[in-house]
Amino acid sequence: MQQNDDHLYTFGLLDEDAKREIRRSLLKAVAIPGHQVPFASRDLPIARGWGTGGLQITLAIITPEDTLKVIDQGDDAGVNAVNLRRLITQTTGVATTVATSEASLIQTRHRIPEEPLRADQILVLQVPMVDPLRWVEPNLERATVMHGEADYGRMWVYMYESVVRAGDLRIASQYPVMVNGRYMMDTTPIPRWDVPRLDMAEALFLFGAGREKRIYAVPPHTSVVPLQFEDYPFRTEYQAGQRCVRCGAENTFLTSHFVAGPADGGQWVTSCSDTNFCDQRLGAGEVQP
């Protein structure tokens, strides 16, 4: 135990027993990819629903040698990112970075960085909604049994109906995937764009839901397959001709902003959601005007 009289808090804010309990749950989650492991979500100086699940995982696994990156919707300067980063550094003193390649531990809300992750990196995701079966089985106990028996027929009916009703798979986020061919997992924290990045990745993905008190994981080299139909395959948000107004990238996840203009009152423009990726392209002169 690292107890320093000079510090107001233990390293990483949480007490060592709490961290140990979270790490035990993490081990189980990694051992059973996609399976939701309950954990005793602690009270923190931020409100539940603001990333406490991801924060607890980060605080439980962070070491003084780590280099931390925190993003909110891909943006290192987002309000949520800034606050969480401040809390983690003040209670651990670890180094921080905005460069994806320099980080060993990345806590994120809603995005996986565009730059491919390496085997020595861990991505911690903040999860708003844990169970993909919530839509078709509100009763938690019954949903647990359904997971236990891999009884996912009803979720398939839900997907089928979304195709029949809307003519396509219109599930924007929360896209359900099968992990390691066994457990169905929600991808609430990320857009469809990022779903293929989970499949057979090099890095370790850890998911924490503070409000719902669940932890789950996708270990490296694990298959993650979206639910889809032969005649209606899974599709990302990519649209032909899309382009970032800043760096000109044509193959990234974009966010749109309204830019006020002097004459016509302004217009909507799109730019990379991953600000670090965009900045790096600008710095390297990869901009194609």
Binding site: V136, G153, W156, V157, Y158, Y160, E161, V164, F229, D231
Partner: peptide, 21 residues
């Protein structure tokens, strides 16, 4: 909570039919 068509389709989906058409 599902449509009549969805209910009938459930058995086929469980039998791993994966073609909406």
């Amino acid at each position: 909570h599902f449509s009549v068509g969805g209910n009938v389709a459930e058995k086929l989906l469980l039998a791993e039919w994966r073609h909406v058409g």
